[in-house]
Design a protein around this nucleic acid. Structure first.
Length: 750
RNA sequence: GGGGAAUUAGCUCAGUGGUUUAGAGCACUCGGUUUACAUCCGAGGGGUCGUAGGUUCAAAUCCUACAUUCCCCACCA
């Protein structure tokens, strides 16, 4: 053995050994109990970050521990298509070539992104492997694999059949220029100076920069704590409007800032996100006054078909004529949303989206998701995180599952164009020109084939007729261009990875044992998996949830590119080894709280790896001197050997027994850092500093070396799930009863 | 604005059901080349547990308020 433990020399060798042994492949065995974890799928085209490392370290620890305990331990790997994120990354690449997503039809863009992901997919997979993650690669799933997609589509079909799916309006960021929606992350805000109009609504006055949206007002709102307007709450205000006599109800909502303007807000649910939310809270009507073509809609009455800014001008003049404008603040500066590409104005519009009912009277998704937590069929660790889950699920309203991005699973709904002339289409014609308009008009000039081939987006009004089907229901149909929210598909991840509903794996391994992930996606991901799991199978998708904390940068701040404090885990793997990095991160998170990147601990555990390496060397050296060269030469602890044992021998054996108990106890409670710390303290300070120093000076070492051999091999087993590489490497050096590798060895019994 | 959490040694953090002298790692001081390991060994210094009250025989731990910090969600008509 080398005098130092050199991780770089052994990591690759050990990996090969494990793979040749096929230890990570789980066999369904009726005699064994299953233990299953699904790996939260990292972005397929991304690379390993510190959060992934921690996640893998914890899950591998659990899986190796249970595998050694004799469970059929299955760790299901996979990667996520990461819809929006990947599309954005890809578009950045396109921009470098002077192109954008608007230069391509939907299908071409999709296959370009597909190829991009395939080219970049290898990195994260290699890194998962290098981490020593004992995942079962034979059961690998990518979220866009055909059979994975098929399960997701079947779920949608089932939900549609059972009345859980509906289409409704939802506020989106819409660009008239590009004829498409933009996600929140694609929006930036630009500072602009606009006149702020103080408009009279009978006895009340409202400050707004957008008088034209008053046509879509369906209430006035004040803050419930605002004494000035207390008497108006609940009353209906009557006033003379530009369209004639009008009336609006006054509601109280804490969203309203009493300090802004007059403290009275006009609520326009159709054209403002916050107003939309207020509208939901108070059951207000959504009155759409602006269309996707950038003109006022039919609801705007005599202002219909005017462009937004023309309407603003006209309405302002009409208000002046009515004497309804109290004053105009010309120096008002505010931020307006613009698209990230051209900084062109973004309008908030309500457009039809696909929704899932979460509290359907017969098939509620929400209620059972809360019940299982209350009834402890699903346990959340650490316990104090539970409230995040329950509160969010309690307040959850219907879920908008459609997204206007290309990179994802397309909603399997089909519209017959000639039956839905009101559908808005955007496509590239045969010569690549961008065309947009209503289906009824466009079909006169373009063939369906041309439209389908060049199709970018399609907006079907709420009332459109559609057919849900995995494949085209016939000629004349166009498929919905919206894709599913990532969480709609990843919410079915435990079912997808186990190939619900007919596979043997599903029957044996479902429900899974533990779901381990970062706490920030409890609401978005965990809650959805619980909902889908119960909805489809009647049972929870996992019995326990463990939520780890976030790793902050060394300076205690959140890692971010702009601060330049992002830690690349590869650097630490390279420098200190995978084991040290894994163990260091695990020991940084004692109780699921956020923590700073524990560089000192990583170095400390690198030293520890070297320490146990040298303890082994020394033990072997002493054994050799005593002519103990094979397993059979050892006097191992037994009833008989006990008579010859000293107090020290018995003490260290007792210490080992206590350690095994402590480690098991802490692992059951997800107290990984404590378990790791216990092993560290025992091996270094009890075994090395105390016991080995004692044995060193003995005249007759035979009995004690047997004890030491036993203690060392048991400790290596305990440590293996934490630091798999160094323990396996040492294991190979020590004489043993059989040739079983450590990864396949049984867990110590106290 | 709504929600979650933190405040313990110079630094980073444990302290899980309320009880001896409040622990660990790093850093620091002193001393060590003994059959492995200087990525080592031995010894040591360092804390009125954020502040103020309260409950109790007993509080870092439970309760209340305040201060400071961090994070999540929603974000200004």
């Amino acid at each position: 053995m080398d005098s130092k433990f050199e991780h770089k020399k052994i990591e690759e060798k050990i990996l090969k050994r494990w793979e040749e042994g096929n230890y990570f492949h789980a066999e369904r065995d009726p005699k064994k109990k299953p233990f299953t974890i699904v790996l939260p799928p990292p972005n397929a085209s991304g690379k390993m970050h510190t959060g992934n490392v921690l996640m893998i370290a914890i899950e591998d620890l659990l899986i190796r521990w249970k595998r050694m305990q004799g469970y059929s331990a299955l760790w299901l790997p996979g990667t996520d298509h990461a819809g929006f994120e990947t599309q954005t990354t890809f578009e950045r690449e396109l921009r470098k070539k002077g192109k954008s997503r608007f230069d391509y039809d939907r299908n071409t863009l999709y296959s370009m992104i597909w190829n991009f992901v395939q080219e970049n997919k290898g990195l994260i997979e290699t890194q998962i492997r290098q981490m020593g993650a004992s995942v079962d690669w034979s059961r690998y799933t990518f979220t866009l694999d055909n059979d994975a997609v098929d399960i997701v589509l079947s779920t949608f079909e089932k939900m549609e059949k059972e009345g859980l799916v509906y289409r409704d309006d939802y506020v989106v960021n819409y660009s008239f220029k590009w004829g498409t929606t933009f996600s929140d992350a694609e929006i930036t805000f630009k500072e602009r100076k606009d006149p702020l109009y103080y408009i009279k609504y009978g006895p009340l006055t409202v400050a707004t920069v957008r008088p034209e949206t008053k046509l879509g007002d369906t209430a006035l709102a004040v803050n419930p704590k605002d004494k000035r307007y207390k008497n108006f709450v609940g009353k209906v205000i009557e006033f003379e409007d530009v369209t004639g006599p009008n009336s609006l109800k006054v509601i109280a909502d804490s969203y309203v800032d009493p300090k802004f303007g007059t403290g009275v807000l006009k609520v326009t649910p159709a054209h403002d996100k916050n107003d939309f939310e207020i509208g939901i809270r108070h059951g207000l009507e959504v009155k759409n006054v602006i269309s996707t073509d950038g003109r006022m809609s039919a609801n705007a009455g005599k202002y219909a078909d005017l462009k937004v800014l023309e309407a603003r001008k006209q309405i302002t003049e009409d208000l002046q004529a009515l004497g309804s404008i109290e004053k105009i603040d010309e120096s008002y500066e505010h931020l307006v949303p613009v698209d990230y590409r051209s900084e062109d104005y973004i309008e908030q519009l309500v457009l039809p989206n696909w929704f899932i009912k979460v509290d359907h009277p017969k098939k509620s998704l929400k209620k059972p998701a809360l019940d299982v937590v209350k009834q402890k069929k699903l346990k959340i660790f650490p316990k104090w995180r539970e409230i995040t889950y329950t509160r969010w699920v309690e307040n959850m309203h219907d879920w908008a599952i459609s997204r206007q991005v290309v990179w994802g699973i397309r909603v399997p709904a089909w519209y017959k164009l000639d039956e839905n002339p009101e559908i808005t289409l955007a496509f590239l014609d045969d010569t690549g020109n961008f065309i947009t308009g209503k289906a009824g008009e466009l079909l006169k000039d373009y063939s369906l084939e041309t439209i389908e081939k060049g199709l970018q987006t399609l907006y079907a009004p709420k009332s459109s007729k559609y057919v849900v089907s995995k494949t085209s229901p016939g000629t004349g149909y166009l498929q919905e261009t919206d894709t599913f929210d990532t969480w709609f598909s990843s919410g079915q991840w435990p079912l997808v990875t186990l190939r619900y509903p007919n596979s043997e794996d599903y029957k044996y391994y479902y429900p899974t044992s533990v779901l381990e992930t970062g706490w920030e996606i409890v609401t978005r991901w965990v809650s959805r998996m619980v909902m889908f799991g119960i909805y489809l199978t009647g049972d929870v998708p996992f019995h326990e949830v463990y939520l780890h904390g976030h790793i902050r940068a060394i300076d205690g701040k959140k890692m971010s590119k702009s601060l330049g404090n992002v830690i690349n885990p590869e650097e630490y793997m390279e420098k200190y080894g995978v084991d040290a990095l894994r163990m260091g991160l695990i020991s940084g998170t004692a109780n699921g709280k956020d923590f700073n990147f524990p560089r000192d601990k990583i170095i400390g555990y690198r030293n520890f790896a070297n320490k146990i390496w040298n303890m082994t060397r020394f033990m072997l050296m002493m054994m050799e001197k005593e002519d103990i060269t094979k397993y059979a030469d050892l006097i191992l602890p037994s009833k008989e050997a006990e008579k010859a044992m000293s107090k020290k021998d018995k003490e260290v054996l007792k210490g080992l027994e206590g350690l095994i108990k402590k480690v098991d106890k802490n692992l059951v409670k997800y107290r990984f850092a404590d378990a790791g710390e216990d092993i560290y303290q025992f091996m270094w300070h009890e075994v090395a500093d105390n016991y080995i120093e004692h044995v060193k000076n003995l005249e007759d070492k035979k009995v004690s070396l047997g004890v030491l051999h036993h203690v060392m091999t048991e400790c290596l087993k305990l440590l293996h799930p934490f630091m798999p590489f160094v323990t396996e490497a040492i294991w190979q050096e020590i004489p043993r009863a059989d040739s079983v590798d450590l990864a396949a060895s049984p867990w110590p019994q106290a």
